[in-house]
């Protein structure tokens, strides 16, 4: 497992606009966890997330981890302006070739890595992966390899227990 997760918001519908997935693109595995139009309501959030799923489904193997992250960010920037204009896009994209991992992100207040159910923060205040929501600019940063990388959106606490459930990750 080398997956990206995103912590859901508080409330009864914590995963409005959320999408998550991973693909092998050549020798690179790209994992993503995003929230698009999360404040737009359940149905618009789903529509926006579907549009973002289309973006990730359309990616092609274009080189190394850095190249693929750049291409993914460019594709996200092409999302319907309805979604981008809101500034309502939170992302964590991680590309790994098995020996190193690189990430781009937007709208995050924290990034954690998890191995065997143990999580630790890798992004202290001021870390370049932390910042405002919106389409990420494609500048990637090396991060530790891990089983799972967890993005914590601004305004959302990192869960004290059951991180997977807080990210909407359900047993198969």
């Amino acid at each position: 497992m080398r997956d990206a997760w995103l912590v859901g918001s508080a409330g009864r519908t914590p995963f409005v606009g959320h999408l998550r997935g991973a693909r092998d693109l050549g020798r690179v595995r790209l994992a993503w966890a995003c929230c698009v139009a999360g404040t737009a309501g359940v149905e618009q959030g789903w529509e926006a997330a579907e549009a973002a799923r289309d973006v990730f489904a359309g990616l092609r193997a274009t080189g190394d981890a850095r190249d693929i992250l750049t291409a993914a960010c460019a594709a996200l920037a092409g999302l319907d302006p309805r979604w981008l204009a809101r500034g309502d896009l939170t992302t964590l994209l991680v590309a790994t070739d098995g020996t190193t991992a690189r990430a781009v992100a937007s709208g995050l207040a924290g990034v954690h890595v998890g191995d065997s159910g143990v999580f630790r923060s890798i992004a202290p205040p001021g870390h370049p992966l932390l910042g405002e929501p919106g389409a990420p600019d494609g500048t990637s940063h090396e991060i530790p390899l891990a089983e799972v990388w967890v993005g914590v959106p601004a305004g959302v606490p990192f869960p004290k227990r059951d991180v997977a459930a807080a990210c909407g990750v359900r047993p198969a």
């Binding site: 859901g8 914590p14 995963f15 529509e47 359900r170």
Partner: peptide, 13 residues
């Protein structure tokens, strides 16, 4: 829109 409403509670997959 059942998928939208289920996913909003259940999770992104």
């Amino acid at each position: 829109p059942v998928l939208a409403h289920l996913a909003a509670v259940w999770g992104p997959e």
